[in-house]
Simulated scan of single mutants.
Amino acid sequence: MWPLLVALLLGSFHCGLAQLLFKNISSVKIDHCKNIVLIPCYVSNLEAENINELFLKWKFGRNSDIIFVFDGYANKSAAFYKFSSAHIFPSEFLKGNASLNVAKEEVKNGKYTCEVTELSREGQQTVDLQYTDGSLFTLKEHISIIILPFLTLILFWAQFGILIQKYKSNPVNRKTIILFATGLLITIVVITGASLLIPGGFAKRKGYGFAFLTTPSVIPVFLQYHKFKPAIGRTLHTVIMLTIIQAVGTVLTVAGLYHSSLDCVPRYGSILILGLAIVALGELFGLIYMKCFDPLIEFQ
């Protein structure tokens, strides 16, 4: 009787070992910060002592397309289906780490299946990978970065309206056309940038959105001469002051965006917002000066 029980217990034990077990990781989220994406797969009861006892296969999508194979016996690997950068570390695989490393540009949302074979034992695990809706800035910074370029845009068009009325400009005047065309360009760029920040987009798309929103901050610096040229002799100090103010704002804006794009932690948003605010402040000062102090002369 006892030998029979022992045999049954040993038989059950060996049957249990026939199945490889995996750490319970059903899904993973990645963000824009990672250049190399790790798709996890960890075998918890691997017993192989030599890499030639192992075989690994990674599949992707509903059709289970094979994207990567590692043959331990031949000690060779191959990547397929537009996952050319896919690779593992054999020394880590021998310890149970069958995670796949893939370049961010090649990774897609979807289900990835890891199939591991160890001599007569095998097992598989499926991981659902999704990109997170990451952002370079906090929500409050996000809102400010959208509002300030539109404020600058409104102040610019207000100045343009004063130039048309106060300086009795000819609608087809060359300088009027330059300012109108530039204002139209800024308007298109800002609206495009704001549309790229609609929730649900990927981080790369949002990065383009922030770039579109901040790029127009450079343009007002070069427009001061055209806006004040009718009275350049009497407004030279004003032109210089506004140009310096907006140049400082532009430098801060570009620096804030540049450092934010390099850092995964949103901590440079305040610099970018300060730059955008200074650019808008320069437009406000220009509007006040045109309205209250600038002499009434012909805009030529």
Results as ranks from 00 to 15, higher is better:
residue 231 A to S: 13
residue 226 H to Y: 15
residue 158 A to K: 02
residue 182 T to Q: 07
residue 239 V to A: 02
residue 235 T to Y: 05
residue 152 T to Q: 03
residue 210 F to H: 15
residue 238 T to A: 08
residue 195 S to N: 11
residue 199 P to M: 10
residue 174 R to E: 14
residue 188 I to C: 13
residue 214 T to Q: 09
residue 206 K to F: 13
residue 256 G to H: 09
residue 228 F to D: 04
residue 166 K to C: 08
residue 180 F to P: 04
residue 166 K to E: 00
residue 182 T to V: 14
residue 258 Y to K: 02
residue 190 V to L: 03
residue 185 L to I: 06
residue 149 P to Y: 09
residue 248 V to Y: 05
residue 165 Q to W: 15
residue 221 V to K: 03
residue 246 Q to M: 09
residue 192 T to W: 09
residue 180 F to E: 02
residue 237 H to Q: 10
residue 180 F to I: 11
residue 222 F to A: 13
residue 241 M to L: 14
residue 217 S to D: 06
residue 206 K to A: 09
residue 156 F to N: 06
residue 232 I to K: 14
residue 181 A to P: 02
residue 236 L to Q: 08
residue 222 F to T: 13
residue 255 A to N: 01
residue 182 T to W: 07
residue 253 T to W: 03
residue 203 A to T: 10
residue 155 L to A: 01
residue 153 L to G: 03
residue 164 I to C: 03
residue 229 K to R: 11
residue 260 S to K: 00
residue 181 A to H: 08
residue 234 R to E: 13
residue 233 G to C: 06
residue 173 N to C: 04
residue 255 A to M: 12
residue 251 V to F: 08
residue 158 A to H: 00
residue 155 L to G: 03
residue 234 R to N: 12
residue 160 F to G: 04
residue 175 K to A: 08
residue 178 I to Q: 06
residue 155 L to Y: 07
residue 210 F to Q: 04
residue 172 V to L: 12
residue 223 L to Q: 03
residue 178 I to R: 08
residue 188 I to E: 04
residue 167 Y to S: 10
residue 169 S to A: 15
residue 245 I to D: 01
residue 251 V to D: 01
residue 151 L to T: 10
residue 205 R to Q: 12
residue 255 A to G: 01
residue 178 I to N: 10
residue 151 L to V: 15
residue 231 A to M: 10
residue 183 G to C: 05
residue 195 S to I: 09
residue 219 I to D: 03
residue 239 V to E: 05
residue 174 R to I: 11
residue 155 L to W: 08
residue 226 H to M: 12
residue 254 V to G: 02
residue 200 G to T: 07
residue 249 G to I: 04
residue 228 F to Y: 14
residue 203 A to G: 10
residue 195 S to V: 07
residue 196 L to P: 03
residue 223 L to P: 00
residue 247 A to Y: 07
residue 256 G to R: 02
residue 201 G to N: 12
residue 208 Y to P: 03
residue 250 T to Q: 04
residue 225 Y to M: 06
residue 207 G to Y: 10
residue 174 R to N: 13
residue 160 F to C: 01
residue 230 P to W: 13
residue 259 H to D: 03
residue 165 Q to K: 12
residue 168 K to H: 15
residue 228 F to L: 14
residue 250 T to N: 06
residue 206 K to I: 00
residue 210 F to N: 10
residue 164 I to V: 14
residue 251 V to G: 02
residue 195 S to K: 06
residue 186 I to Q: 11
residue 206 K to N: 08
residue 228 F to I: 08
residue 243 T to H: 06
residue 245 I to A: 10
residue 218 V to K: 01
residue 208 Y to G: 03
residue 207 G to T: 00
residue 217 S to M: 10
residue 155 L to H: 01
residue 161 G to R: 09
residue 243 T to W: 04
residue 258 Y to Q: 02
residue 258 Y to I: 01
residue 151 L to Q: 01
residue 155 L to F: 14
residue 151 L to S: 07
residue 222 F to K: 02
residue 191 I to P: 06
residue 180 F to T: 10
residue 203 A to H: 12
residue 152 T to D: 02
residue 172 V to I: 11
residue 236 L to D: 02
residue 240 I to G: 02
